[in-house]
Amino acid sequence: MGAAALPVLIFTGFWGVVGIVLPFIIPKGPDRGVQQLVLMMTAATCYLFWLCCYMAQMNPLVGPKLNQHTILIMAREWGNLIQ
């Protein structure tokens, strides 16, 4: 299990608010039902999409294979200098 708590909590919380809390506080109107559904589905689909991407990377089966040029540039740009 390689998951960090913070991003999971933030994302679950954010889409939870959009999908569960917001539908309750929508003002009454003729289109309230549709608006609620739209919010809930947006939250569900977006959360699912993020979750799948996160979980797919939790336990990487393979590591990235990098070209030597790429490694050199990565080392320079992303601050992990080669000894």
Partner: peptide, 16 residues
Amino acid sequence: VPYPVGLDPVWQLALN
């Protein structure tokens, strides 16, 4: 732990 949001940028550069 994975990159918090989306795919790790390293994959864009990876050969595999």
